[in-house]
Amino acid sequence: MLDDLRELYQEVILDHSKNPRNFRHPEDANHEAHGYNPLCGDTVNVYLKLGHNGLIEDAAFEGKGCAISLASASMMTDIIKGKTESEARQIFDGFQKLVKGEENDFDAGEDTERLMMLAGVKEFPMRVKCATLAWHAMTSAMDDKNEVSTE
């Protein structure tokens, strides 16, 4: 019973969920979006400060959610900071395939190992939306769509 669960709820995940990084609302954020999962009522606000040439100068979030969604949002904000918009979208693309179990050769460069921590989600199809909520909100913020729902 516990193997899948230990894989899903690794120390790193629990640490990110209990002490989420970048859990704040930066005053100089110039893009933001609200993500909502109507199934469970979880919400996340993602804040981005986008600079010239699509550089993500700052990324942060606030919200309520399960361990998976908080950890994923926390890791995401850490990872995308300092990257460009298109790099962030590319990572999300691969990450989404990873948690859906559609990607066996996941490669996100230096961030591969960190994101692989969330690969356990693929054994729990009902939880994929938890893992991707903040990422959807991130792309919505970039696209200046202010609302995103996982439905």
């Binding site: 019973m1 516990l2 669960l5 709820y9 399960c66 361990a67 729990f124």
Partner: peptide, 15 residues
């Protein structure tokens, strides 16, 4: 306290 119901649901399901 401190544990989201979705995480509870996933874990008890395995039992």
């Amino acid at each position: 306290d401190g544990i989201h119901p979705h995480d509870i649901g996933t874990i008890v399901d395995r039992g």
